[in-house]
């Protein structure tokens, strides 16, 4: 009995003190950690792909006349990373931020306004394009495209 007690004590003492200095020293974060998602608002086209795949439906999209307001309630986020997978513009990426503790729930709400060009006829939004952007050939269909000498994709 005493031998096993001593063995137990040796196991305990061999390890030494392993406590990490965490709150006073930065934590180790592995590569590819799925932390708080960050949204690059300048890339977002307001397609709503993230809203449709999100398991906790935390993305709320409201279309207003000249803009789309996207509100994300990150207190519900389960950090699955689905939104980052499906985003067609790679606007969402999982950051390494996990220190999301807060005393105010509103700290976790992210509101984005995307200003969109609106169709003058129906009044609905579409993503605006500046003259510097390359033309989107996909929207050109049929004979007109062929006349321009561009292969349809």
């Amino acid at each position: 009995m005493f031998r096993s007690k001593i063995k137990e004590a040796i196991i305990c003492l061999e390890a030494g003190r392993v406590t990490l200095a965490y709150p006073f020293a930065p934590a180790f974060i592995p590569k590819g950690f799925r932390g708080l998602p960050s949204v690059d608002i300048n890339r977002c086209v307001g397609c709503g792909g993230c809203a449709s795949v999100c398991p906790s439906s935390l993305v709320e999209i409201v279309d207003e006349p000249d803009r789309t307001t996207i509100t994300r309630y990150f207190e519900r986020c389960i950090y699955c990373g689905r939104c980052a997978d499906v985003c067609p513009e790679m606007a969402i990426e999982m950051t390494e931020r996990f220190e999301t503790a807060t005393n105010d729930i509103r700290d976790l709400h992210v509101v984005h306004h995307i200003y969109m060009a609106t169709c003058s006829r129906c009044g609905r939004c579409f993503s605006s394009q500046t003259p510097l952007d390359p033309p989107d050939y996909r929207s050109f269909k049929g004979t007109r495209l062929n006349r321009l000498g561009v292969e349809s994709t």
């Binding site: 305990c12 003492l13 030494g16 003190r17 406590t19």
Partner: peptide, 8 residues
């Protein structure tokens, strides 16, 4: 006790 538990 904490020493035995290998913590601070």
């Amino acid at each position: 006790k904490a020493v035995i538990h290998s913590r601070k």
